[in-house]
Design a protein around this nucleic acid. Structure first.
Length: 310
DNA sequence: AACGAGGATTTGT
DNA sequence: ACAAATCCTCGTT
């Protein structure tokens, strides 16, 4: 386990990312990675960002999170071109680096948590902790990140209690580092959720938006399908809203706003540098007779519809 | 010029 | 075997 701590919103287009990792020896944990892997609507993930403990390197400032109830489609899109950040080759480089960093960071975090669990003899899921487990985790975290001792603050608290507490609760109980503890707990929660999601499959449905997760490429060994890939992009509007977005999420109607860009992303994912929209759209059309994607009732250019919306 | 439909063939796993 | 990739012709916007 390293000496990492910290959070930063929106890794997109943060040039220093790769350099930072190299120069500083992988110091920062970019929580936005988790966010990008899941839907942006996961309410309990939303607050993870706020604490930025111990950032060793220059990192982008946390972006205020949108309020609940706002349309996800309207959430801010960070776009390299819009920020004047090198279109063309460099932009693509960054984009690819970003994806590499994402998977790398997530892998590292999961590994570290696993190590900690073995060492402390606790489960990865904070919800299952008894009060003893909680104390172990607290001591471990405090020691690892050189936090002031919270002492007996959380005596007799179970993991479930802890998980139910807001960041504000943490801050009140431990003014010195409550926010940091809360952030770290959130990481564990994220990891546990992710693990469960990957192993369980489809046995539970916790509400409308969960189904697409089955199709997430991050934990199915099989090669990703095009329709899955498109869904992935659609569920990360803050990353890809500029090139593909929902017109009607409920009906599964979406529009490809930048066909060339989407094709490039697809080509990169499949390691097909010669991919273009001509070929991508041909693959989409193959879905017609398979009943996966169709043209909407009122056919519009670059607009398609999932036959089975989530 | 860019998109759309769909046939034919090849490719990668 | 299968989904995609590739290549193609022809029609539409």
């Amino acid at each position: 386990m390293g000496h990492r701590a910290g959070a930063a919103w929106e890794m997109e287009d943060t040039k220093p990312c790769m350099e930072a990792l190299e120069h500083c020896g992988f110091p920062g944990l970019y929580l936005s990675c988790f966010d990008m892997l899941f839907t942006e609507d996961s309410a309990w993930l939303v607050k993870v960002s706020e604490a930025s403990p111990g950032l060793a390197c220059a990192m982008p400032v946390p972006v205020p999170r949108m309020a609940h109830g706002e349309e996800p489609e309207q959430c801010p899109v960070i776009d390299s071109q819009a920020l004047g950040l090198s279109p063309g080759l460099e932009g693509q480089e960054e984009e690819r680096s970003l994806e590499q960093v994402q998977s790398m960071v997530v892998g590292e975090v999961l590994k570290d948590i696993e190590t900690a669990c073995k060492l402390l003899n606790i489960t990865p899921d904070p919800m299952e902790w008894n009060s003893g487990n909680v104390q172990k985790w607290l001591l471990w975290t405090e020691h690892l990140y050189r936090l002031p001792q919270a002492g007996k603050t959380f005596q007799e608290q179970t993991g479930k209690d802890l998980c139910a507490m807001s960041e504000e609760d943490f801050r009140q109980r431990v003014p010195q580092c409550g926010d940091t503890l809360h952030a770290h707990l959130d990481i564990w929660k994220s990891a546990a959720w992710m693990k469960e999601r990957c192993s369980v499959g489809d046995s539970k449905i916790t509400g409308g938006e969960e189904l697409w997760l089955e199709a997430d490429s991050s934990c199915s060994g099989q090669p990703i399908h095009l329709w899955q890939f498109l869904r992935e992009l659609l569920f990360k509007p803050h990353n890809y809203g500029r090139c593909i977005r929902w017109l009607n999420k409920e009906k599964g109607i979406f529009k490809i706003e930048d066909s060339a860009h989407v094709a490039r992303l697809w080509g990169r994912r499949k390691n097909r540098p010669a991919m273009n929209y001509d070929k991508l759209s041909r693959s989409i059309r193959q879905y017609y007779k398979k009943g996966i994607i169709r043209k909407p009732d009122v056919s519009q250019r670059l607009v398609y519809q999932f036959v089975h919306p989530v």
